[in-house]
Write a protein that binds this DNA or RNA. Structure first.
Lengths: 221, 221
DNA sequence: GAATGTGAAGGTTTTCACAGCA
DNA sequence: TGCTGTGAAAACCTTCACATTC
């Protein structure tokens, strides 16, 4: 059987993460009133190589002008389109402990179109209270309220011990994308996207680097 | 000039991150009273491959027993040693906004030996107040107090606009490891380790995955 | 002249597959 | 027999270098 005519290309996680980086850099450049930017300059700003920048972008099209570079506003919009952040996403956050409470007020999310519409907790003192304009819902009503509010992305900020149970319910409600802050490896069906945010990991990397005298990509052992 | 007799091996970032994952898995296994674990089982738990687990560990030594697997407690301790989390680290946190405040109470840090000893802010209402047993210091005294307290790692949780200025001071104080939560690319000298924690990035990945119907490592474009 | 877009080369990381050991 | 440890192969990612375009 022949592959369909739709082009298939492997896009690496690294490329996607760098697109996020380019997007942020371009936002800054826009504020600084730069009209165009070359791959060389952009690379320098973000400690990458010009070839890397051009290659990453080339997976998705030809956005530049030879001899000139990339139009800042235009490229920013193109990347927003690729990343899917040129639209609004309906997000729910579960767990209003330390991390959860901080995330409700995290302006970077809203700025990129990730709008927290629903909050859930199991603590009676929190349920019904108003957090940044959102009334906290009882976790007992999770499934029905997620469906009702058409939530597309769920952020998990509950203790590791209950995270799997909560996630099972979230999946049951038909949500296809989960960002997990609990330090545990969650099981989800193959059609659900799951990403983990592990804040200790980067500290452990620093610790490793210091103990081992790590020079990037090379270590004495 | 001949390379010194000390073995040099390239250890990838991915390997180090996976060591963090193994460590967490082993902590859980220890609680569950498992005495030994095979690379196969460990890989299955963390959605990796057995060969990957064995290769990662092999960079640092031979910790297993053929036919049997790895001793859970022993391997956990070995990895702690490799990552440098078999000791206590003296950490300072700068910026007591939403994120900073959440991190002060983040138990996962303490559990791994990252002890927040100092807090800094520029808000007069916060300076002098008590956060989880720590008196908040004035950012004005940053350099002297970092030195005085022998801080080894600094966590930056200030707005992006002032982050570079703060980091320059942190570097000046002789700190060699920085974990940055501000969404900006910071400049540090080559002998200072800097890691970034960008919480929007994973949401952007989810967004990308949904918009592009991304199947791991392969995307239709 | 300046900078993109891109095959090809070069490196790095992962997986394979099997010898070797408990 | 069961599972580790590891060279070798395969897959993947980054960099090079240059033809191409403005």
């Amino acid at each position: 059987m022949v592959e369909s005519s739709e082009e298939k290309k492997r896009i690496s996680e690294s490329t996607i993460h760098r697109l996020s980086i380019y997007y942020r850099a371009l936002s800054l450049l826009e504020k600084e009133k730069h009209e165009t930017i070359s791959s060389k300059e952009l690379a320098k700003r973000e400690k990458l190589t010009p070839a890397q920048v051009r290659k990453d972008l080339s997976f998705f099209g030809s956005f530049g002008t030879r001899g000139l570079g990339y139009n800042v506003v235009e490229l920013k919009q193109k990347i927003a389109g690729i990343l899917g952040i040129n639209r609004q996403w309906r997000v729910a956050l579960i767990g209003l402990g330390n991390i959860g409470s901080a995330l409700v007020s995290y302006k970077e999310f809203v700025r990129q179109g990730f709008n927290i519409m629903k909050l859930f907790d199991n603590d009676q003192r929190k349920i019904g209270s108003n957090h940044k304009g959102i009334i906290v819902s009882d976790i007992k009503n999770l499934e029905s309220e997620l469906k009702e509010a058409n939530i597309e992305i769920v952020i998990i900020a509950v203790p590791a011990t209950v995270a799997q149970y909560i996630v099972d319910n979230v999946v049951e409600a038909g949500v296809k994308a989960i960002l997990n802050f609990a330090p545990i490896n969650l099981r989800v069906p193959p059609d659900v996207y799951l990403r983990n945010e592990n804040m200790s990991m980067e500290l452990e990397y620093l610790s490793f680097a210091m103990v081992n005298n790590h020079t990037p990509k090379r270590v004495k052992i």
